[in-house]
Design a protein around this nucleic acid. Structure first.
Length: 427
RNA sequence: GUGGGUGUAGCUCAGUGGUAGAGCACUGGAUUGUGGCUCCAGGUGUCGCGGGUUCAAUUCCCGUCAUCCACCCCA
């Protein structure tokens, strides 16, 4: 057999995991500052859960799920996180425990698509779900949180797109108007859009096909068919975004691909060469009907998910600092015993220490220390053992001095105590 | 599912119808036990896989697989 990872699923090596850890750290710190707490759920769910929540007409459910049979059940690898959280919310009767529930999650998701830049079969999302708060200020606060997080991370050209899909009434009214609008010009549409006309005409609006673009000119605008409550909510959202000073663009054609969204939907994008054509970093919106439709109490809810691979692409090749490294290089058998003990004493003082126990030359040990980016190297062989000292090399300052092992431990511990602030990258 | 590009050393890639190269990396040496810079030396390849054309294929042709990019869709 060929030894390789499954198509569209990637191994992430230490050079990369450092960046992942930093991103996850920033994400957790950000959302925890807003009162979200972590929820962890299995990656396998009953397939039916996704059919009922993500939606039968969504492409994700129709053809992108990895499924498997097990003792009569059909299971699916989760293609997104929201349904699992909703299942827990209902199953744990969260509505009866607290008036508002705020959860976040981080983890792998699975969609059987053709892989390309920024899109993989196993990919990673970090997201939040907030249940029990119907107000538009809550939507604005979430969008503002996300905008600021992306900007703080250093992503260039972040853009916020918002739209309102209205409630169920407006939605079905709009669907009919769209059908009425497109039906006469059916022949002008792309084949794919023609299929969409029957089940989900909204999606024709965000098609990139020039034929659909042209045909969409003058199409009815969803914002015009909102009922009064929807409109009040929409105005409230924009007002709150204005109050927060969050820059945004109203995009009447923004329609998300999951069926459950109501009212507010949003997407944050970035423009960088690194990102390829997948420039949506994060998307979300309100899903006020989902909990009820899954059999729970009527509960307003809003959430988002961000694609970690895409965020990392947008961030580019930023180096993440590691804590200082101390390299212990004993020469000879006697020194090796001394070395393993000394290394542990250094670690007990909080240092990151690699003991080179290989039987090779000092030159190659020093080369290794250098290539690992070590700050210090402790060298000692028989002559040092006789004199009860070690050579303490500062590889950055190119200095070396002789200290007793005790002095060396104290010296390094003291110097390590005031490191430059490396964020979220502890090994 | 559809379209296009690419598969040669550990990595990045060059190259040719006559059995293959560079840079980087690695190891050793110049410096008996002192790194980064410099210089010298050293090795590895089913040339993705299968078939065809040919005296001869890594090179040309067909197929296949993988990968990348794009469409679709989405984070």
């Amino acid at each position: 057999m060929k030894l390789r990872a499954v198509k569209g699923m990637n191994d992430i090596l230490p050079d990369e995991t450092r960046r992942w850890q930093r991103l996850e750290h920033v994400f957790r710190r950000t959302v925890e500052a807003y009162g979200y707490e972590e929820l962890r759920t299995p990656v396998l769910e009953q397939k039916e859960l996704f059919e009922k929540s993500t939606g039968e007409t969504s492409e994700v459910v129709q053809k992108q799920m990895f499924t498997l049979e097990r003792s009569g059940e059909t299971l699916a690898l989760r293609p997104e996180g929201t349904p699992s959280a909703a299942r827990v919310y209902i199953g744990q009767s969260m509505h009866a425990r607290e008036p508002e529930t705020r959860w976040y999650y981080v983890g792998p998701m699975f969609r059987a698509e053709q892989p390309q830049r920024g899109r993989y079969r196993q990919f990673h999302q970090a997201g939040c779900e907030l249940y029990g708060n119907p107000g538009p200020v809550c939507d604005a606060e979430m969008i503002d949180m996300l905008y600021r997080m992306l900007v703080d991370l250093g992503i260039p050209n972040v853009q916020v797109n918002v739209n309102s899909l209205g409630g169920p009434n407006a939605r079905s009214l709009y669907r009919e108007r769209l059908r009425a609008f497109f039906e006469p010009k059916r022949a002008e549409l792309s084949p794919h859009a023609q299929e969409r006309l029957a089940d989900n005409p909204l999606r024709i609006l965000d098609s990139k096909d020039p034929r659909d673009r042209a045909a969409s000119d003058g199409a009815p605008v969803l914002l015009d068919v909102l009922d009064e409550d929807d409109q009040a909510h929409w105005r409230g959202l924009l007002q709150a975004l204005d109050a927060l000073g969050t820059p945004y663009t109203v995009d009447p054609r923004l329609v998300r691909g999951l069926d459950y969204y109501t009212r507010t939907c949003f997407e944050l994008t970035a423009q960088t060469g690194e990102l390829g054509s997948q420039n949506a970093l994060l998307g979300g919106g309100r899903y006020d009907g989902m909990i009820e439709s899954l059999g729970g109490p009527k509960t307003p809810a809003i959430g988002f998910a961000m694609g970690l691979e895409r965020i990392l692409l947008a961030l580019g090749e930023l180096e993440v600092a590691r804590p200082e490294l101390c390299f212990v290089a004993p020469l000879g058998e006697h020194a090796a015993l001394e070395g393993v003990v000394l290394a542990r004493r250094l670690r007990d003082r909080g240092l990151r220490v690699v003991l080179d126990g290989r039987d090779n030359s000092l030159k190659s040990k020093l080369r290794r220390a250098n290539s690992m980016g070590a700050r210090w190297c402790l060298v000692f062989g028989d002559s040092e053992l006789d004199r009860k000292i070690v050579q303490v090399k500062d590889l950055t300052a190119h200095k070396q001095e002789e200290l007793s092992p005790e002095e060396a431990v104290e010296r390094l511990a003291a110097e390590n105590a005031q490191p430059p602030g490396a964020v979220g990258s502890r090994p």
